[in-house]
Amino acid sequence: MKNLTEFIAKSLVDNPDQVDVKQTRQSNRVRLELSVSKEDMGRVIGKGGRVANAIRILLRVAAEREGLQVTLDVLEP
């Protein structure tokens, strides 16, 4: 899950080396916290959160296969 988020984020941003993902897990709930450089915030959030929502949908596909629930938050820099 962490890998997938990192991969997508790094492919979208201008500064891939500043992409960081923290994963925490409580029973079957996985929480992902994504941080990127300030200039790249728009690229991973998108207009009206469209990019972030698309990433969440793809994460859900991966999560469902393992019986997990996943949330993704983009952290303020």
Partner: peptide, 19 residues
Amino acid sequence: ILIGRRAETLNALQYIIGL
């Protein structure tokens, strides 16, 4: 699973790949 309800997943894939 890659299509999803009302092609939601397919459209998410398409959007990210397009970007």
